[in-house]
Amino acid sequence: MKTIKEISSNGFAFTLARVPGSQRVLFGGADFKVYDVDFSAAKPEAKALGEHKSYVTGLALSGKIAVSGSYDGRLLWWDIDARKSIRAVDAHAKWIRKVAVSPDGKTIASVADDMVCRLWSVADGKLLHELRGHEEKTPHHYPSMLFACAFSPDGRCVATADKVGHIVVWDAVGGKSVKTLEAPGMYTWDPVQRKHSIGGIRSLAFSPDGKYVAVGGIGKIGNIDHLDGKARIEIFDWKKGEKAIEFEDDKFKGLIEHLAFQPKGDWLLGGGGANDGFFLFFDLKSKKATRHEKAAMHVRAFVLDEKVETIYAAGHGKIQVLEAKG
């Protein structure tokens, strides 16, 4: 996979969003700041919009409004043209892990380690729903984490997924649970060697037709200290409550941190890593990984452009623009 452009992310970048139809990207990470960078420039340079009080882990864009989420528990609204923060909401009591925006751009979902998903009005920052359906403790009595969320393509549903592999699909309008799914293979509790766990469902995506929910993480870990487990994907026909695909990769080890379907729904792209990083193309018909690409960093988030020709990726140390063809 050819690197087209790349800049330093000033440390670990955890989240990224792209202004549609442009090469302008916003990202945030371990230096607490929210940046934007225009890769159409001859020498792209990241400029800070402002900052949180801890790691920035979620970003979503709705027109000229960006919403960032952080381990400080706050959501910040940004006017990306004026380059300033326009609203701050104390959204969660614990770390915010992910932020997603509905397809119509009206609603923001945030998930955090208080194990609650909250839906917010983009327009005025009002809380619309509190979605509670994830246990605060793991079966082994340790704090659980609510890592992932995503809206369905029609915007009617939002799905959330946690550390122990519990997935809930919610009615985003009514605020009620409509389906629960289980992916216990994503929970990496080691009962013998190390007596702890660091896996969990880290990524989640709906298929373009809304029929499937894909989740990503890591399989059974040989050496938990080094993320020494196979990259793992599970795909559910969520309305039927059936697991359609369970896949562990033979080549790449590490967490699948981000998942995205190709717009036609033929394949799924996963990005992640352990010490190093990878992109994994997964064909839905053959149920096989059809392409493995090493990445120059542990990939935390990425966006495909409209033509599926370019990938904008954020990770440990870099923001990259990559050629997706091949």
């Binding site: 380690d113 340790y142 704090p143 984490m145 060697q193 190390r194 007596k195 702890h196 766990s197 660091i198 938990i224 200290d225 080094h226 993320l227 352990a274 010490n275």
Partner: peptide, 21 residues
């Protein structure tokens, strides 16, 4: 003995799990 704190990967997740205990 409480093992295993050897957090070469995901140090913060490891400590988020073990330190409260």
């Amino acid at each position: 003995g409480r093992a295993w704190w050897d957090s070469h990967g995901e140090n913060f997740e490891t400590h988020r799990e073990l330190v409260p205990e």
